[in-house]
Design a protein around this nucleic acid. Structure first.
Lengths: 212, 212
DNA sequence: GTCTATAGGTTGATAGAC
DNA sequence: GTCTATCAACCTATAGAC
């Protein structure tokens, strides 16, 4: 059932895999090193041998996965040509997390990290997300010249929020909606998310305060 | 600086206020009862006298705030008449969290709770959110008859995600966007969120898998 | 109702044998 | 590199004096 690419994974990899799964499921604070080493079937002290601390382990877990995702996003953005449509930009951003298969337990972990503006993102944001955000903001601005940079920024936040929420609730959405919505239907989810966000980005410029 | 409505708050209220602030800032697991009692300037044992446990305290903190918010949402929805527009339904859902002033440290707490499908929501969802969701889904379906219930459910998820993300990142959005975006401009945020979500809800029905 | 004192358990991290 | 054994610090929760 579980994807286990190597028959014999190294201790370090076993720890990373177990930590990824448990951090994603229960969060950082609620997961003890003993939980991790038990799941990885390695010794407790191995964590402090291969990594320095629990925090350093968390950083390793994240950066192992975040970087390929963001690189893939830029790849897809580049492959859409010089003047991509809004849909193409959104697809480039969402596809690596919604469609790509080899992500393991990362989706819920990414969602959890993005949902928790704690210490980790303070470190991770400048080096990993800031350049990505700039690049995509530029692409959105080019596709929708009538939007101000401020509005592009707002709408990117809304798009990221939509994505994050789905990642976090993936396993619960189906029962919550009474079977109506199934997040494991990746293509369906992707199509719905792109439709919603593209229409949102194309919404008329907000000029003042609306009143109901 | 801080809003302190009562000159002399009861010990129980002081605990609730401090817990609300700290749980919202740092999360449940990362906040100890000692942190809370220190901030509230009460004795450690008072927590276990007024509440039974840390978890029961968390539940009290949440239910004290969630219920008025959801009741206000339904009030606003009712006051929009029998056939509200999409914008009016969205406003009814978002205004209590984005616009209303007397929420204290709750926004980040609500965001955190919604972002963490943990034990609390398993208990809170059936009695507090399920009826609300049904009511709003019905209103959206009435305003947009061409959407299937499945699509209404998806788009509500995207809307809730947009809202949650803003709540969680409220304090960080400004510096992250280089001063471009200011979440403390409530009316501006509200207008942008309503515009984005309304357009998203009005997006054409997704019939199949789009291809770039 | 509020305090002190402490029980009873878990945590992250490390020392040192192999 | 991997193990056992353990430390010091922290936690929640409670008992019992006032």
């Amino acid at each position: 059932m579980k994807e286990r690419p190597d028959v014999k994974a190294s201790t370090k990899e076993k720890i990373l895999d177990a930590a990824e799964k448990l951090f994603g499921m229960n969060g950082f604070e609620a997961t003890s090193l003993r939980d991790i080493t038990a799941a990885a079937e390695v010794n407790l002290a191995a964590v402090n041998y291969h990594f320095q601390s629990k925090e350093a382990l968390m950083e390793s877990v994240i950066s192992r996965r975040i970087h390929p995702v963001n690189r893939r996003r830029l790849e897809l953005l580049d492959s859409a040509g010089e003047n991509p449509t809004v849909e193409q930009v959104i697809r480039a951003f969402l596809a690596p997390v919604f469609l790509e298969a080899n992500l393991g337990g990362v989706p819920s972990l990414i969602g959890r990290v993005l949902a928790d503006p704690g210490q980790f993102l303070k470190k991770l944001f400048p080096e990993e997300f800031a350049p990505l955000t700039r690049r995509f903001a530029e692409a959105f601005g080019r596709a929708l010249p009538e939007l101000t940079p401020r509005e592009v920024a707002w709408r990117m936040h809304f798009m990221i929020g939509s994505m994050t929420h789905v990642l976090l609730w993936k396993r619960h959405i189906k029962e919550m909606s009474g079977g109506l919505v199934d997040a494991s239907d990746r293509e369906g989810l992707m199509a719905e998310a792109v439709a919603f966000c593209a229409a949102g980005f194309r919404a008329p410029v907000v000029v003042g305060i609306e009143r109901s």
